[in-house]
Every structure is written in C-alpha cells, then in structure tokens.
Design a binder for these strands. Structure first.
Length: 352
DNA sequence: AACACGGGGTT
DNA sequence: AACCCAGTGTT
C-alpha cells in the first residue's frame, strides 16, 4: 500500500464524520442509501442533504417504495433542493433498477453509468462505497486534495485526467470505499478550498503544494462570466373557496416539471402590465419584487394578484390550459414549489 | 469543450 | 458580489 494512502486511511479511521448514509464501522452500507445520498449531494452541501436524506428514507424506506411512488410526490419532496433533473432522474432510475435489474444496483462504474442521473463521479462513488469495487470517485474534494498533493498547476478542467491518474495511483484495491470517503472528509475538514489547515494535515510532509506555499492557490480554475439579469411577472389567482391557480412547468428547462405560479417568460424585458395577463383579468401589483439568483442569471420577479378572490362561478368559466389546476391554499406547502415560487407565494398570500 | 441547470452558505 | 459545494446531460 502506498505510504500516502496508508496515512489517509489511518486519519480517516479516527476522524471520519458520522453521516446518516454511512454504515457503522465494519458494516456494508445499503446501496439504496449510498445512491440516494450521492444524488442528493451532487452540487449540494452535506448540511443541506442531512436534513433531507432522512425525510426521503422515512417516507420511502426501500428502492421499490420509491419506484412505486407517484412522480409528482417525489418531485414535491425534492422541492427546494434544486437541480430538478436530479429528481426526475432519481425516480426514473429507481423504476429502471426495480423493473429491469430486479432491484439490484450494478456494481461496476461502467454499468452504473448507464443509469439516469449517474455520471463519472457517482458511478465511482457507488461502486467503491456500496460494493467495494476498486474505483476512484473524483468529486471536487478529491480533485482539490489530489491537485495539492501533487502540485498540479494546470487549471481545471484541463487537468482532470492528470488528477484521476494520480488518484488511481493511490487507490487501495482492498478498501476503495474508505479511500473515497477519506478523500472527501480530508477535503471537507482539512484540505478546504480557502485557508486549508495544513498544520493539522496527516499528509503535510507528502504534500508538494503545501511545501511550495501553493496549497490555497490550487486547483486553479478559470473565472466564470458574470450573470445576466432577467425579469418576469407572476400572477396570483385566488378563488373564493380558498384555492389558488397553479400549473406544472414543461418537462425540460428551468425548474422542469415543477409546479409554479402562472408567470410570464423570464426575458430581459417584461411585456407592459396591461398586456398579456392570464385570462385578461385585471391585476394589482405588489410593492415588493422577488429577487432570486439561479445558476446562470439573476431574476427579478414582479408580483401581481387579483383585488378580490374570483367567485366560483366566474372561475368555472376560465378555460384552463393543460397542466393548470386549482390547489387548496392550506395545502400549499405540500405541492412542492421551487424556492423562487415559494418566496413569491409567501408574499402573495399575505396582506398587501 | 461549453453550456444549462438551484439553492444555500461563506467571505 | 464572487466563490463554493460528494456533478450530470446536452449540444
């Protein structure tokens, strides 16, 4: 076993974080738990996932239970976690594994990668952690730790292959799961993006970047372009019996397949207020806007609502397009609004 | 290789 | 405001 690997594993044995999806020492974790946690953890912090993982497992204790759940319920349970393609793929993957693989996840990265929502990293992580298959799991933690250990100064993403080769040199064939998680915990606790705790690092004397005073500068990354600003309008249409008009978004694109308050497109320039309001109804404008930042743009959402709830008999005359529905206001929290829509609803349902 | 795709936390 | 986070899928 490589000297650095040995130090890493010894450190991990003493400092591993206790996390809900990890098995007690000496036990094999449930592949369903490993898979679910890895999907949730894609671009999402441990603190956020901690709160949601238990909810999911309580509600759907097995892969089969998740596969048999209605898709809307899974999407609603995912609301607020972001990157909603993950939720669509999660449900699709659960059904594929249950139906065509007899409920058993494949054990190799090559086969795992064929499943929806499982890419290079997640395939390696599941194979290593759940099945002890000798694979590396290159996430940003692993990339950072390896880039520093070997002082890789070439920027990401060009150096990805170099980093992977270095990681594979260190990979212990007998305990790949511990290695993957040791790399992650080291990256999360010691080898942090900013102000790494090199003095506490078990690999300090092996780390080329630390010796050169380069640790905090690695890995190098290219700067991201600034986010453009967009605007839109949301329309709150309440009915006299305490329901509000919602709709499901298209399958693909932003917030795909999620529920929203009827809104205009989010362009740079919203249409005039008196223009295309739903059903040509007359709306009042709320003072506060909703500001929300997505991955690649800032959104400023103007909020509109009817002066009075719509009488039932008038509401019945509205020609509801496919995907639109009246939803009880007292059950708004169970419908699964994405965060931007939750912010809007919280303002719209309150007083002016 | 570049881009689309959320949200919350830190600095 | 910029950066970060247990990335994947599409083009």
């Amino acid at each position: 076993m490589n000297r650095m690997t040995d130090k890493m594993l010894r450190w991990y044995a003493r400092h591993a974080r206790a996390l809900p999806w990890r098995a007690p020492p000496g036990q094999r974790p449930d592949p369903y738990h490993v898979w679910l946690s890895e999907i949730m953890l894609q671009q999402t912090t441990v603190a956020t996932v901690r709160k949601r993982f238990d909810d999911f497992v309580r509600r759907w204790p097995t892969l089969r239970a998740l596969a048999e759940a209605p898709r809307e319920e899974v999407l609603a349970a995912w609301a607020g976690l972001g990157y909603y393609a993950r939720a669509r793929n999660l449900h699709k993957c659960a059904r594929e594994v249950t139906r065509t693989l007899n409920g058993q996840f494949p054990q190799t990265p090559r086969e795992l990668k064929k499943l929806p929502g499982i890419g290079d990293y997640t395939a390696g992580a599941i194979a290593a952690i759940a099945f002890n298959h000798p694979a590396v799991a290159m996430d940003t933690n692993a990339e950072r730790v390896i880039a520093r250990l070997f002082a890789v100064t070439e920027p990401l993403p060009e150096c990805k292959e170099t980093l992977r080769r270095h990681a594979e040199e260190l990979l212990p064939k007998d305990t790949p799961g511990d290695f993957a998680q040791a790399l992650m915990d080291l990256g999360a606790i010691i080898c942090t993006p900013r102000d790494p705790a090199c003095a506490l690092c078990p690999l300090m004397e092996d780390c080329k970047a630390s010796k050169q005073g380069l640790a905090e500068d690695l890995p190098r990354k290219r700067r991201k372009p600034p986010k453009p600003r967009r605007t839109g309008r949301a329309f709150w249409i309440e009915r006299a019996d305490g329901r509000v008009l919602l709709r499901r978004r298209p399958e693909k694109g932003m917030l795909g397949a999620m529920v929203e308050i009827p809104s205009t497109d989010w362009d740079g320039a919203p249409p005039p207020f008196s223009g295309e309001t739903p059903f040509r109804l007359e709306f009042e404008r709320l003072r506060p806007h909703v500001r929300h930042t997505f991955t690649h743009f800032h959104l400023k959402l103007a909020l509109h609502r009817l002066p009075e709830p719509l009488p039932i008999d008038r509401a019945r005359l509205l020609p509801l397009p496919p995907g639109w529905f009246w939803h009880p206001l007292d059950k708004l929290d169970t419908v699964g609004l994405p965060t931007v829509m939750k912010k809007a609803a919280n303002l719209l349902r309150g007083p002016r």
